[in-house]
Design a protein around this nucleic acid. Structure first.
Length: 466
RNA sequence: GCCCCCGUCGUCUAGCGGCCUAGGACGAUACCUUCUCAAGGUAUAGAUCAUCGGUUCGAAUCCGAUCGGGGGUACCA
């Protein structure tokens, strides 16, 4: 009997929104689940009340939906393994922590933070590893129990002081740690909440998680988890530590050095599919030098064992390119809706629709739209170049344009070409001047087409405003 | 400091012992196209495969050391 594939992501509601690094692990988990007919779960790890951010969970869940990374089980779905919020599962952690104490695999600790700090200072001075010194380890269980009634305490993992603990990682192979260097990790905090280490193990077991696919910054704490599985007599899940996305300077991706919140990417007008496509290329590549592909195509070809173990750095430029590719292959009507939506429907949809063919190849993300196209909606308020000297020629142009019968790009172009011929102006100078008069800018969508959209009246009027 | 992971163009990657005088993509540069900017096309630069030692007839590919980078070292996750 093969164990059903059940994977999960475990975001913490401690930030503004879904972290882009989490989007990456979510993508990998999602694809792995789909590939293996598995279940994809979201579990909220909200055991740190001091870092808890109100509203964060809702934003995380919303962003996951925005990316279309649909989860089968989560805090807002039905599911027989719930609740999916750790703060609602406190009884489980307490139960297993006590079971561990009963087995002698964990113990009560009454040390104050002041003492721990003192202890660490000494260790650092002596260049020793900063591990708990076992001060409370040998208090006999009866006494410990008694003290726990009226003293603050934590429960610590009882790590053997010899031997090794190892695990098999799908990507990295065998990883070995010496037990004497593994800390007697706190499992249950003095406020009754578990630490991550106890909570993940208990929940992953209780939720039937088959594969733990998470970022590599967890490798160092994995041996503690392994010990916990052993002590509790539970079967190990498969571990797969995926690369950690880095800042351009190669440090762990952080908000100080790179945009990290999903909302930022959304605000910039990146497409969720494009972001996922970009992220998919981190540590993995689609066979055959193909760069643009859908998540369904990825699911077909993806093999997690082939993920590279190197931490890739985030390259906004390439993301923009991928996004531009997506924009270019979007059908015009759909693009119109997307942009209109992005602009909160504050601009006439009809005009947006007309501008699409002109801007489609000129924008990489939706936030590029307005800077390029605002002149369609309002007269230029400033000119990038002084064009006063062209006043007379503009008047001539304006007259010429008025006589254009069929107001389309071709006729507009012909009319203006006549002005060039009659005045003997250099055509590139002339068209640039007209462009400035009409759009206010040196860089704009094609002139004739733009004027066609603006209409005869508006176009000629702008020439006279200079 | 200690522990763990990692190391192919600036960046993302292909490569799984001979097909590699190392391929693709982004980015850069140049040209073509052109009323601007893009898009598109073409081309160029860019990696002695971190280094040094092995193994082998043969190594980017296997092994070791060194160096470099990253992560962890919390009653954070």
């Amino acid at each position: 009997m093969i164990k059903p594939v059940r994977v999960r992501i475990a975001p913490s509601p401690t930030g503004e929104d879904l972290h882009i690094g989490n989007v990456y692990t979510a993508l990998l988990n999602y694809v792995y689940a789909k590939k293996n007919n598995g279940i994809f779960i979201v579990r909220i790890e909200d055991t740190d009340r001091t870092r808890y951010v109100q509203g964060s969970e809702a934003r995380i869940l919303n962003s996951l939906k925005w990316f279309d990374l649909d989860y089968d089980e989560g805090p807002d779905t039905e599911g027989k393994y719930g609740p999916y919020r750790q703060s609602e599962r406190l009884n489980f952690y307490k139960k297993y922590a006590e079971e561990l104490v009963g087995k002698g695999k964990a113990y009560y600790c009454f040390c104050t933070s002041a003492r721990l700090e003192e202890m660490r200072k000494g260790q650092i001075a002596r260049k020793e590893p900063t591990l708990y010194d076992g001060f409370c380890k040998n208090i006999n269980s009866k006494e410990a129990k008694k003290r726990s009634l009226n003293e603050k305490y934590v429960i610590r993992l009882n790590v053997p002081d010899s031997g090794t603990t190892q695990f098999e990682d799908v990507i990295r192979g065998k990883v070995t740690f010496e037990n004497k260097l593994i800390d007697d990790q706190v499992l249950l905090k003095s406020d009754g909440y578990p630490t991550y280490h106890l909570a993940v193990v208990v929940d992953d077991y209780l939720m039937g998680i088959s594969h733990v696919i998470r970022a590599e910054d967890w490798i160092s704490s994995t041996p503690k988890h392994i010990l916990l599985y052993h002590y509790l007599g539970w079967e190990l899940p498969v571990f797969c530590h995926v690369p950690l996305i880095r800042n351009p300077d190669h440090s762990k991706l952080s908000k100080r050095k790179n945009p990290v919140w999903a909302s930022w990417y959304k605000d910039q007008g990146f497409l969720p599919e494009a972001i996922l496509n970009y992220l998919a290329q981190m540590g993995w590549s689609y066979p055959g030098d193909i760069e643009i592909y859908t998540i369904e195509e990825m699911i077909k070809k993806f093999d997690i064992a082939h993920l590279k173990a190197v931490g890739p750095s985030f390259d906004l430029k390439k993301l923009e390119w991928v996004n531009g590719e997506y924009i270019r292959k979007t059908e015009n009507p759909k693009l119109k809706d997307q942009i209109s939506n992005y602009l909160d429907h504050n601009y006439p949809e009809e005009i947006i629709g007309k501008t699409i063919p002109l801007v489609k190849e000129r924008i990489k993300k939706f936030s590029d739209y307005l800077p390029l196209s605002s002149f369609f909606f309002e007269k230029p308020t400033a000119y990038e170049i002084d064009i006063k000297a062209w006043k007379d020629i503009f008047a001539k142009t304006s007259e010429k344009l008025k006589s254009v019968k069929k107001w389309d790009a071709v006729s507009i172009g012909e009319a203006m070409q006549q002005v060039v011929n009659e005045t003997g102006k250099k055509s590139s100078d002339y068209f640039m001047a007209v462009r400035i008069a009409v759009t206010g800018r040196k860089v704009s969508p094609p002139l004739n087409e733009s004027m066609e959209i603006l209409g005869k009246e508006e176009s000629t009027e702008r020439l006279k405003l200079v």
